[in-house]
Amino acid sequence: MTGPPDPDASQDAEVVAQSLDEPELFARLYDRYAPDIHRYATRRLGAGAADDITAETFLIAFRTRVRYDTDRPNARPWLYGIAGNLIGKQRRAEVRSLRALARTGHDPVAESWAERADARVTAQSAHAPLAGALVGLSAGDRHVLLLVAWADLTYTEVAEALGIPVGTVRSRLNRARRKVRSALGADPAFTLDTTEVV
Rank of each mutant, 00 (worst) to 15 (best):
M1K: 02
M1T: 07
M1C: 04
P4D: 11
D6R: 07
D8N: 07
A9M: 05
S10Y: 09
S10D: 14
Q11A: 12
A13T: 02
E14Y: 05
V15N: 00
A17K: 11
Q18D: 13
L20V: 03
E22R: 09
P23R: 03
F26S: 01
Y30T: 01
Y30P: 00
Y33V: 00
Y33C: 00
H38R: 12
A41Y: 14
T42S: 13
G46A: 09
A47F: 12
A47G: 03
G48L: 09
A49I: 00
A50I: 09
D51K: 03
D51Q: 08
I53Y: 12
I53S: 08
T54K: 04
E56H: 10
F58C: 05
A61E: 05
A61Y: 09
F62E: 02
T64Y: 04
R72E: 14
A75Q: 06
P77K: 02
W78R: 03
L79K: 01
Y80M: 11
I82W: 13
A83F: 10
N85C: 04
N85G: 15
L86M: 06
L86H: 08
I87M: 14
G88R: 06
Q90K: 14
Q90V: 03
Q90Y: 11
R91I: 05
R92Q: 14
V95I: 15
V95M: 10
V95E: 13
S97A: 14
L98N: 11
R99N: 05
A100I: 06
L101R: 12
L101M: 15
A102Y: 10
T104M: 05
D107L: 09
P108M: 07
P108H: 09
E111W: 08
W113S: 04
A114E: 13
A117I: 15
A123C: 04
L130V: 14
L130Q: 15
A131T: 08
A131E: 10
G132S: 13
A133Q: 11
S138D: 13
A139L: 10
G140H: 12
R142G: 08
V144L: 07
L147F: 12
L147M: 15
W150P: 00
A151H: 03
A151E: 04
D152K: 02
L153H: 04
T154C: 03
Y155Q: 11
A161C: 02
A161P: 02
V166A: 03
R170Q: 07
R170W: 03
L173W: 03
N174T: 13
R175H: 14
R175V: 10
R177L: 02
R177S: 11
A183L: 08
G185R: 02
A189N: 11
D193Y: 11
T194G: 00
T194L: 10
T194A: 13
E196V: 06
